[in-house]
Design a protein around this nucleic acid. Structure first.
Lengths: 335, 335
DNA sequence: CTGAAAGCGCTTACAG
DNA sequence: CTGAAAGCGCTTACAG
């Protein structure tokens, strides 16, 4: 292995000077610099990142802390993860995956000193991991939000997204618009659920009709259950905003299985999902595409900004989803 | 930060002895050990992984080297990635994501000394990255295979999978079975394409009919194109084995758009996809579920085995997909 | 502008 | 069974 010492010897300088040119930390005379750069070339030297990390107490590694995603493969999730990985790489950081649910194990990992910062996914309204993170003093950024808004986060702008979805449906003449959201289970209560529901209530208020909210699990079966509940409990509803990626296909299939046409009898917008998902379903769903890759990238970026000492207020970023028209929205059925 | 020195002082031993008990590298007298363990507890000491890495020249970090997955979110991919992350964690290793296409950048990363080993995804038949990896002397394992079979790999057993798919269709009375595979583009030629096609030829040989192979891109549009080609070019075909996850939904939709029923006119098995994908489509697709999470886990495991000095031959693992019946396979239409 | 040297927090022969 | 010490390959005050 070629070390900095080898380079220094070949260029007839001290290792300190080599370090200065590699890192650009101090000005170095042009001819000295040239000698060093030549030596680096000739020896094909590459600085050892571990030694650098130890000496500088900065590893330039970020952790992506997420629950076990194996069980619920969600199309937007991988885009998010890849966005974060790219964002980190572009800033010269590495991203490690920490599939950790156990809050104890998380503290262990944090204390090991491997990472400079943490990206926390699937944030809950009250999230014990946030307290651990705060206690560990390791900088972090959230994907999603907790109850209190003074932590750095990056999130989908659900308010704008839902409003635009409802607006789009109103433009087609719908007045009775339901929301199909995600069911919180005992342990998890993503902040998004709460925010989505309140955005929905806001958005439909001008229509002057009572809200229709259905919560189902994020699976095909959940989607079919939603179709049935819509049919049985809310027959006056002519359009639905869905914020539950896993249930999208089931909702479309279930609706048709009940003899109702999409969009003839029921219009559907699937918010915060991928365009690819929309295309897979029959009829192709009109979606509000989640800016998942951008969010991942921005989360990494924001975290690196903090690590590199940008002293501003904690970054708080909201991005709305973008409407991608499909074939699942039309006028309401004649009464 | 609490260091090993702090622990040593509190326990009245040398830091070497502390290291021995933490790592179990040498036997230590029971009472000494007890003192040290107590000190660790009291100080809540956690060994610094960076210092350990530098001293032992083992970082216990693995890299997952993959192309940009953002563009083609493929449901099995995330399961694979998560499987690898879990597998690594369980062995006490961290997994970093390296979204790298550029083969130059890859060498840079490899030379940095951050990782002990590499997992290489989306392996091509002739893969330049493999040569780089070999040159770098960093141990690795492949997901998929190159032309030559003497490198350590973990892969789907396509031969068995395709045979079982064809067998299943024969059991329903099909004799004319087509293959819809993935189109290789200029730069990528996954080894799987080749292996899938030859497995298909083997599997249908006993049927005594000419093969019908269609290659399309891995998108909904590709799937619709396949439906049309089947209809136009291979009217005698009554069943298809699909090995192209991205095209699955398009094939089903496209077939129906041509006025043909699934499975009434055409039976479909989608191989090497997730069960969730099958459920999303209408009708629910019969799939051969890819053992993606297992493969990821096994790849990580195999790599760690090598790193920890298992001297055996390079691990080569093949796992077939498992049949998950849906509603897309039935008897062939009466002639 | 450059260098000598301490130090980052561990592991690991080597001695005893 | 335990310790003193060298060393992993860098960065970074501090001097000059």
């Amino acid at each position: 292995m070629v070390t900095m010492r080898d380079v220094a010897e070949r260029a007839n300088v001290s290792i300190a000077t080599v370090s200065f040119v590699i890192n650009g930390t101090k000005r170095v005379a042009p001819e000295t610099r040239a000698r060093i750069e030549a030596a680096i070339q000739e020896l094909n030297y590459r600085r050892n990142v571990v030694a650098r990390a130890l000496a500088s107490s900065r590893t330039r590694i970020l952790a992506l802390l997420h629950p076990d995603l194996e069980s619920k493969p969600n199309a937007t999730v991988i885009q998010f993860v890849m966005g974060a990985a790219h964002g980190a790489r572009e800033r010269g950081y590495d991203l490690v995956l920490w599939p950790v649910n156990d809050d104890e194990q998380m503290s262990h990992l944090l204390a090991g000193g491997l990472v400079d910062g943490v990206l926390l996914m699937e944030v809950q309204i009250r999230d014990a991991r946030v307290a651990r993170l705060l206690a560990s003093r390791v900088p972090f950024a959230l994907i999603g939000r907790t109850e209190d808004d003074d932590l750095p986060y990056v999130d989908i702008d659900f308010a704008t997204t839902i409003h635009q979805a409802v607006e789009h449906l109103r433009g087609h003449g719908h007045e009775r618009v339901a929301l199909v959201a995600q069911q919180a289970d005992a342990t998890t209560e993503p902040g998004r659920i709460m925010r989505v529901e309140s955005a929905y209530l806001d958005a439909i208020a001008p229509l002057g009709h009572p809200p229709a909210v259905i919560r189902v699990e994020s699976t095909s079966a959940g989607g079919r259950a939603a179709a049935r509940r819509l049919h049985d409990d809310f027959p006056e509803v002519t359009a639905v905003v869905l914020v539950n990626e896993g249930a999208a296909a089931g909702l479309a299939k279930g609706t048709r299985a009940l003899g109702r046409q999409v969009p003839g009898d029921l219009s559907i917008i699937s918010a915060a999902t991928t365009r690819e998902l929309g295309e897979m379903i029959e009829p192709s769903l009109t979606v509000m595409a989640a800016p998942a890759a951008e969010l991942g990238r921005m989360a990494a970026d924001a975290l690196v900004d903090r690590l590199e000492g940008a002293e501003e207020a904690p970054p708080q970023v909201l991005i709305p989803c973008a409407l991608v028209p499909g074939e699942s929205v039309g006028p309401p059925p004649p009464r």
